[in-house]
């Protein structure tokens, strides 16, 4: 006991040593958009503990200023559209979104002084509706029974009927979407792993993240395995992900870019989202849970084969984006 007290007074406690070692210099930028991308990569050291010789790392996309991976695509889509003159003369950007893209468009639009209109199914969570409205974005609701594809149809019709008023970038068909990841996420992962990445695993929504990142990683080293994650059924709860066999296939999606696809159950993804919070201290959304569950599946496969590996996946957003009113507060106004 006396020794322990003496130790505390003589040397800093281990946590303080660790903090001093990892404190980083905070960067300063002229515009919020400069904070999009260059997200941290964090080791999921508890989750990969039972996979000796395999490391699981996660891109903290929730650290983007809009809180999700979608900031990257929105910034690139809008800056490319501006460069082409598509948003001249007060033309409003209109697109469909299940949430995060809407927040990202709204953030970029507000920062650049551009008007934004969004079509979203009316069953998206209230906080999302209010965040986008807070940026000054116009929200147009679509039928929740028609899902995200119903929102796509309305956005498309608006732009076709009013070409002088609306520009429809269509994130599902826009090459700027995947190029944001080819030029950003991919090179960042390569640099942050010191070129050691062996597997990249992430979910497919518009497919922009996997298409751009996989193309970059394959261009660098074709042996890097790039694996898509899809919900295992059309009726699923992995928000943001698409079950391609039963969906409108995003035109930017090219299955041949992928080395494999993992079919993820909603329950497994949701359980992993909870585990990432309790075991790693990262409170992330359900799609991130699905991604990490898929990454762990890949890691276990490597262990079974006696192989080493550095598996990288994506934490798309934070879990607090998915809060729903509980029983006792169901009439609470968000």
């Amino acid at each position: 006991m006396a020794d322990a007290v003496a130790q505390r007074t003589d040397t800093p406690p281990p946590a303080a040593v660790q903090l001093a070692r990892t404190t980083r210099t905070a960067i300063r930028v002229d515009c919020i958009l400069d904070l999009i991308g260059n997200t941290p990569l964090v080791r999921l050291g508890t989750i990969d503990r039972d996979c000796p010789a395999v490391e699981i790392w996660a891109k903290c996309e929730f650290a983007n200023p809009g809180g999700s991976v979608k900031d990257r695509a929105a910034k690139r889509i809008i800056t490319d559209a501006l460069a082409r003159g598509d948003l001249d003369n007060g033309v409003r950007l209109v697109d469909s979104t299940s949430g995060n893209t809407g927040i990202a468009y709204s953030l970029v639009g507000a920062a650049l002084g551009l008007p934004i209109s969004l079509v979203m199914p009316s069953n998206v969570s209230n906080p999302r509706k209010q965040v986008t409205a807070g940026f000054g974005t116009e929200i147009i609701f679509s039928d929740p029974m028609e899902g995200s594809d119903g929102a796509i149809v309305i956005a498309r019709e608006l732009a076709e009927a009013n070409p002088d008023k609306y520009y429809y970038p269509n994130q599902y068909a826009n090459d700027s979407n995947w190029r944001a990841h080819y030029d950003g996420t991919g090179p960042e992962i390569l640099a942050q792993t010191n070129g050691r990445v062996t597997h990249f695993v992430t979910g497919i929504g518009t497919s922009g993240t996997i298409m751009g990142t996989a193309r970059f990683l394959h261009d660098h080293d074709p042996s890097i395995q790039c694996i898509g994650v899809q919900p295992d059924d059309a009726m699923h709860g992995l928000e943001g992900l698409k079950h391609i066999p039963s969906s409108l296939v995003p035109p930017i999606y090219d299955e041949s870019v992928l080395d494999d696809t993992i079919w993820m159950s909603t329950e497994v993804g949701w359980d992993m989202a909870e585990r990432i919070a309790s075991d790693e201290g990262l409170f992330v959304g359900h799609s991130a849970g699905g991604n990490v569950a898929a990454a762990l599946h890949v890691a276990r496969g490597l262990v079974e084969q006696g192989k080493r590996g550095v598996v990288v996946t994506v934490l798309c957003d934070r879990g607090d984006r998915y809060f729903a009113p509980l029983t006792w507060e169901k009439h609470y106004v968000w």
Binding site: M145, G147, D149, G205, A234, H236, L238, E239, G240, K330
Partner: peptide, 29 residues
């Protein structure tokens, strides 16, 4: 879930909706 769950009463005039808790990627072509 805010009523009596599976024991919630249903009348002939009721409309019952089954809605996935999410908005993304749920539609057939």
């Amino acid at each position: 879930r805010f009523l009596d769950n599976l024991d919630t009463a249903v009348k002939d005039s009721d409309e019952v909706s089954i809605v996935p808790a999410i908005a993304g990627g749920t539609t057939t072509t």
